[in-house]
Simulated scan of single mutants.
Amino acid sequence: MNGKEGDIYITKLERDFFGAFKVIKIGKSFFEEIDGDLMMLGVLNYVDKKKPELNDERLNQILCCNRFLCSNQYAIDFYTNNPKYNDLSKFEYLGNRPMTEFETSIDFKLGDGRSGLKGGFPLVGLMGNDYGKTAFFEWRWENEKEEFKKEVEVENEKARIAREEYRKQSMKPKKMLDDNMFWEVIEKIDWTKDDDQERMEPAIDFLAKKKVSEIKQFQESLAYKLYLLDTKEHAQNIGEDSFKDESSNFSVDYFLYVRCCVIANGQEYFESVLKNPKDMPKDKDFEPLLYIAEEAYEKRMNKELEYETGCDYETFSNYKGWKK
């Protein structure tokens, strides 16, 4: 069984420092598909070479982050309260402290964490063993700011170079599904429905009846077609949010979902848009297509699909398409 409200756990940080976090609230999930309740966790303003004691006043303070682009952002997140995914027993239990007036006032609400206490906090996936490391990052910002900034700049540059080299690779798809069969699945999308999930159900059910190998081949075909549409010229023709230049705001996720919309509208439209980028849909997207193979596989096998495609469909992956 996971912890209860007010429970405090000790975390191990870098350089033999210790930190701590607290279970602030536990409540019902916002989503039916999430197995279990949600727990709201807050990283505490404690960083020290010795383990905290339960009466330490620093355990009364939720960490407020101000490093880099953070501006008075509280280190609070939602996690699934299910030991199968997030087992608090892997952390050392310190004890339980009464909730402070401040902690009680925090709304149990989803948000981006950047809009104040009433704006809600993000839902995160699995808790790593290094949970609470944000406290150490804030400590470095206060005590080693210049050194910390230089280290991050170096790491960011390394990551940028690695991404650039990855994009330059000539990506090749693995075995794909027969093209006629691929478009047969796409044709099952029911556009008479208003709800996206209801639209997708016939296609998901149809694909779920295929062989496991064919479900993976469908995912491969989808990734390759999305990759082919990932060009600068296509991105420049999606309406209000079109790509303009390197210095302008451009949503890489939205462009991916627009490309999904192209494929969801069938073979004839896809082939037309591939040749004529100006025919890209304007201000329309269809994200649900991205998950069709995952949902079909899960329906058939009752477990998550673990498969890596040969081509990366994320925006900017088609190096040649963006260098034109």
Rank of each mutant, 00 (worst) to 15 (best):
K22W: 01
N156I: 08
Q236M: 15
G6V: 00
Y46G: 00
F31V: 03
P173V: 06
Y313T: 01
K12T: 11
E304M: 10
A162C: 06
V47S: 00
R140G: 09
R114Y: 12
D7K: 02
L123I: 10
A162I: 03
R199A: 01
K51T: 11
K225V: 01
P173H: 11
L59Q: 02
E164V: 05
D190M: 08
D245E: 12
I106W: 03
G125E: 14
A208F: 00
I204H: 01
G3S: 10
Q197P: 01
Q219G: 01
N318A: 09
K28I: 06
E5W: 01
F121T: 02
G266E: 03
E157T: 01
M39R: 06
P122T: 07
D56Q: 05
Y93H: 07
V262Q: 09
W183C: 03
F136Y: 15
R140N: 15
K211L: 11
M176H: 03
E32W: 06
F206C: 00
S105G: 07
E155G: 03
M171R: 07
Y257H: 14
C311T: 14
E32C: 07
A264Y: 09
E304I: 10
D77N: 13
F137T: 07
G119L: 11
F136R: 00
K12Y: 10
R114H: 12
E57T: 12
F31Q: 14
M171W: 14
L289Y: 04
M200Y: 02
F68D: 14
F148E: 13
F68K: 12
D56N: 14
G239Q: 08
E142G: 07
T309D: 08
M200C: 11
Q169W: 00
P173K: 05
G132L: 05
E187N: 15
N81G: 00
K51E: 13
L177W: 09
D205C: 02
N72W: 04
N86W: 08
N318D: 10
A223C: 12
S272Y: 11
E157K: 13
F182S: 04
Y9P: 01
A293V: 08
P281N: 00
S248L: 02
L123M: 13
I238V: 02
Q61F: 13
E294L: 06
A203H: 02
P122W: 11
D130Q: 09
K150H: 14
S221V: 00
I34E: 13
V273H: 02
L59Y: 09
L110F: 11
G119T: 04
T11L: 02
Q219D: 11
Y224V: 02
F250Y: 12
M99V: 05
Q236E: 15
K150I: 12
G113T: 00
D37S: 14
K282D: 09
P281S: 03
E304F: 09
E5T: 12
F78E: 02
T134C: 13
L207A: 07
W139P: 06
P202K: 08
K303T: 13
T134R: 12
F218P: 02
K244R: 14
E165H: 09
D194N: 07
K193C: 09
I10S: 06
L126D: 14
N45Q: 07
E53N: 13
F182P: 06
M200S: 04
A159E: 15
G36R: 08
S170W: 08
E57W: 04
E155R: 14
K90A: 05
S213D: 15
R300V: 06
K303Q: 15
A293D: 07
I106A: 01
K216G: 01
E57V: 12
F108I: 05
R15L: 13
Y224F: 13
I26G: 01
L229C: 07
G310C: 04
